[in-house]
Write a protein that binds this DNA or RNA. Structure first.
Lengths: 199, 199
DNA sequence: GTCTATAGGCAGATAGAC
DNA sequence: GTCTATCTGCCTATAGAC
């Protein structure tokens, strides 16, 4: 059943694809499912996108460009003011994750997208570049690990239901900086459990 | 070409399946690929495992049981010594992630596995239970966020190439505790980039 | 425990009418 | 821009011989 001429078909396709990819995964979602939900046919999809993978390329393009911008910003920052630079860049990284939360979910949860040169590989390279920039050119292994922990704390936004407000943002940024600065903690002993839970 | 009777066929199948699932994803890996790499046939796989999804169930069983044990430990701990309890449980959680790094990769990267009641849903419930236990029964939203940040810092192990040594472990645990304790940091301004990187 | 052979289905993708 | 119709190929899973 045709829907007639609409302005936003392409955007509707992308939105629907994102929905289904997030819920079921990229590989587990067929073009038939996407088409059915939109009440069009598979062939109609192929008018707008030459192949299934192109859906992911388009869905992730904006995020990846923003991430590339952030790396460029990092490279342009003077190394002299190290602390201010770290704070600023982690803050921008946090904003990026919040803004593109769904796309990041898509990328991190779908191995099939991670080997695509314009998507997964590009993302990996950019993240690696950011980590390198944050640690500094003369960074020791420990500094790199500290940066990884800080970025990990920021990644906790991905685990959370919804992001709301400046207070939450400030807390996560504070946690990331504290993770970076932290003293090592060793020699912790764990007692044995009384009974297993869950089965 | 038959391989004759071997003791470890079942374990070889699981190891090969894990390899391929990690490299390509669960959905993107066919039973034919697994069989070919092992030099057996698809039908032989079905002798050992009744369905493809059973491979994931077996691969994740040990990790999920260990995680359930950790939740049980958390429930058995006295709430009186809050700080020691938090340190101890985060430490055990870190050990768990290190020990089962590959399985965690498998779970977190494959949406298709995440709706299975004995795998993804069980994992989600256990992680949620652990977060709740760590935050405490009377926890405010902010405490839960702090726990999420701490667990996020620990999750940084998943981003790292290899885990080696007590020093690295101590650093990550320290970062997690510091993330939990951190003061909020607000009002950071980001300058604009000079030029985009990467294309 | 492993094989051959095949059923039965759905995938991604294309051709060409309208 | 969307359709119908169809191709080709691979998928999971099963039956039954050895």
């Amino acid at each position: 059943m045709p829907r007639g001429s609409r302005i936003g078909t392409r955007e509707e396709i992308l939105a629907t694809a994102l929905d289904l990819f997030l819920a079921q995964g990229y590989e587990a979602t067929s073009l038939r499912e996407i088409a059915e939900r939109l009440d069009i046919t598979k062939a109609a999809l192929y008018y707008h996108f030459p192949a299934k993978e192109q859906l992911v390329v388009e869905l992730t393009r904006q995020f990846l460009n923003d991430l590339a911008d952030l790396v460029a910003t990092a490279r342009a920052e003077p190394l002299s003011e190290r602390r201010a630079r770290l704070t600023e860049l982690l803050s921008a990284y946090l904003d990026l994750l919040i803004e593109h939360q769904q796309v990041i979910d898509l990328l991190s949860r779908n191995p099939a997208t991670q080997n695509h040169p314009d998507v997964g590989l590009r993302a990996r390279n950019l993240i690696e570049a950011l980590r390198t920039e944050l640690a500094g050119p003369d960074a020791k292994a420990e500094d790199k690990l500290r940066v990884a922990c800080a970025m990990g704390a920021i990644s906790s936004v991905a685990m959370l239901p919804v992001m709301d407000g400046e207070r939450v943002r400030a807390l996560i940024l504070g946690a990331a900086l504290a993770a970076f600065d932290a003293e090592p903690v060793g020699d912790v002993v764990v007692r044995s459990p009384s009974r297993r839970v869950g089965d």
